[in-house]
Amino acid sequence: MSNTAQTPWQDIEPLLSVQQLSKFYAPGKGCGDVSFDLYPGEVLGIVGESGSGKSTLLNSLSARLAPDAGKVIYRSEQFGELDLYAGEESLRRQLMRSEWGIVHQHAADGLRMNVSAGANIGERLMAIGERHYGDIRARAEQWLQAVEIDSNRIDDKPAQFSGGMQQRLQIARNLVTHPRLIFMDEPTGGLDVSVQARLLDLLRTLVAQLGLSVIIVTHDLAVARLLAHRLMVMRRGEVVESGLTDQVLDDPQHPYTQLLVSSILQN
């Protein structure tokens, strides 16, 4: 048992490479010197309390907030290897419509509330060039069903949906274009516990079935444990610990992670 050969593992290239990324609004406000690789099919959880820089990092990673320093390299299906902030704005927007998805904490930020559920889903398809009305409607119906919304609600507006349904619609809208990388910001944040379980189960199933890569920000360690393969723990803008999800949660090394884990109420 000598040579620790890992050849097949070295062949796969990361989908996203983040190199010494920093974005500060003020000292301690933002995120600093973050580096990691995200591989295809991997779900990375970013955890930490409010104000720890999780959302700033997510915004910088998803091309919505230019960093002060550092690089985000994305290996695109259409465009090859891209240095996100070195390229054109139009390119980033195109990625966001096609290869990427963003699930916001508040569904209203990710949906158009005054157009129908079907149009919310169809809009993403039209943005990548689909024109056939019948096809678009059929795909919208399929995706409503996939996220467990009755397809006869296709002409209703999201405003008439419950919070959990809105969140599922937002997920359908994102997944319809078969993105490779999804960014999620507290996707179960404002939902009742009973609704959360259903959404988590759905998310986990879809992520596994579609082989999606996901970066998910959450302050809920139970959500992180359920969805994430590995975790980064953030505090005051810095990554203080990272690794395999259950190892970080069951055998935390850093004082802050220990505090975070020991603060959960057991039931």
């Binding site: 048992m1 000598s2 040579n3 620790t4 050969a5 890992q6 593992w9 591989y39 991997e42 393969h229 590995r230 690794g243 395999l244 999800t245």
Partner: peptide
């Protein structure tokens, strides 16, 4: 193959 799990990457362990 053999894998040292004390140094392997998370995805290798998974």
């Amino acid at each position: 193959q053999v894998v040292d799990i004390t140094t392997a990457l998370p995805r290798r362990i998974l």
